[in-house]
């Protein structure tokens, strides 16, 4: 991997602009996303946090047009996404699913190469790139010929990340990427991804229900509930207090856990809430 696609001077320019977007799946009786506006700066990693039904996944899908909004507009580098053909748009944006997003009938190498093939890369470049990607996500080279069902959950998600970023996208969207994994694997994968994100200057929007994961990985956290944005702050600001009672209650969880763990480490006795 060589040249970064952007220069440092453009870091403060909004890369993704979500502008007053609304989406209803029942003809307007209720809104999954209701008049949401959000800017994601070039090179930042933003986490959208919320419970199920908060509208966070719907919001994410408006960016690569898996969902088209009823009102409002999504722009990338100032250009409305509605002007692009969905397949073309999506090939330029990395997309990470929960584990099942891999194609079960394709080998690991074929899964990683899928976007490259769609973009028409020459075969030998694809092969080189697949080798590079396996190294990058710390998978042994001989995994290339294996099928997804022979891999562990963590290994599968490494393949998912490799597939998403193989074509060197500037933007990566992640939908509960590490949700189904055990805590150790999850923490390891989270840190690895953050390192890759920084190394290649990618812009990432990540949806998660896990506030702790969001706090440890993201530059900014957007809290959603019932289709509305409750808060849009840095992890530091959120951890040190919020006016919104829902947000305050949400942030209280990792803070209290951190205190209890700190106490465990110093007092060497069980701590009860």
């Amino acid at each position: 991997m060589t040249a970064l696609p952007i220069s440092n001077s453009s870091v403060s320019v909004p890369c993704i602009e979500i502008d007053a977007v609304s989406k209803s799946f029942d003809g307007g009786r209720s809104f999954a996303v209701s008049n949401v506006s959000l800017d994601v700066k070039q090179g930042s990693l933003v986490a959208v946090v919320g419970g199920s039904g908060s509208g966070k996944t719907t919001l994410l899908k408006t960016i690569n047009r898996l969902v088209d909004p009823d009102a409002g507009e999504v722009r990338i580098d100032g250009v409305p996404v509605s002007e692009a053909e969905p397949p073309t748009l999506r090939r330029g944006i990395g997309y990470v699913f929960q584990g099942i997003g891999l194609f079960p009938h394709m080998r690991v190498a074929e899964n990683i190469a899928v976007t490259l093939g769609l973009l028409g890369w020459p075969v030998h470049e694809i092969e080189t790139r697949v080798t590079e990607m396996l190294d990058m996500v710390d998978l042994p080279q001989d995994y290339a010929r294996r099928f997804p069902h022979t891999l562990s959950g963590g290994q599968r998600q490494r393949v998912g990340v490799a597939r998403a970023i193989a074509a060197r996208p500037r933007i990566v969207l992640m939908d509960e990427p590490f949700g189904a994994l055990d805590p150790v694997t999850r923490d390891g994968l989270g840190s690895s991804y953050r390192a890759l994100h920084d190394r290649f200057g990618m812009t990432t929007l990540m949806v998660t229900h896990d506030i702790q994961e969001a706090a440890l990985m993201a530059d900014r956290i957007v809290v959603m509930k019932d289709g509305h944005v409750l808060a849009d702050e840095t992890p530091h600001t959120l951890m040190t207090g919020s006016d919104d009672p829902d947000v305050a209650a949400l942030m209280e969880v990792p803070r209290r856990q951190a205190e209890r763990i700190a106490a465990l480490m110093t007092e060497n006795r069980p701590v009860h809430a």
Partner: peptide, 27 residues
């Protein structure tokens, strides 16, 4: 066919025809 697999295919930028030929047909 698992709808999540089809959505993943849409997500990586396959056209409906490519989804049919490369994903749905073999599965």
């Amino acid at each position: 066919i698992n709808p999540a697999v089809v959505e993943a295919a849409e997500g990586v930028g396959m056209t409906p025809r490519q989804i049919l030929m490369r994903i749905k047909a073999p599965l």
